[in-house]
Amino acid sequence: MRLDCPMCGSRDRREFYYQGDAVMLARPAVDAGEAAWDSYLHLRDNPAGQTRELWQHEAGCGAWLVVTRDTVTHAVSAVELASDVKRAMA
């Protein structure tokens, strides 16, 4: 399995760390309430299909990445810098 790091190019999966769903980018406000925080940290859509996930190029440039990937075929359709994605969310 390989990922195209925007900084480093196509690298083998073993250079990357996977954290989980990219919902983790949308950290709730302090007063968002129990349900919002439970959803943020625990609940997941967990689709058999396309997801957006957070990876880090741990053994390379250290960039955090948002990867759009199909969990059934493992086909990767996009790899973006997480900081770009987060900024666009603002």
Binding site: L25, L54, G62, A63, W64, L81, A82, K86
Partner: peptide, 11 residues
Amino acid sequence: LEFVAQCLHPE
């Protein structure tokens, strides 16, 4: 720390 700086507060 990198997660916080890049994913939560890139600003």
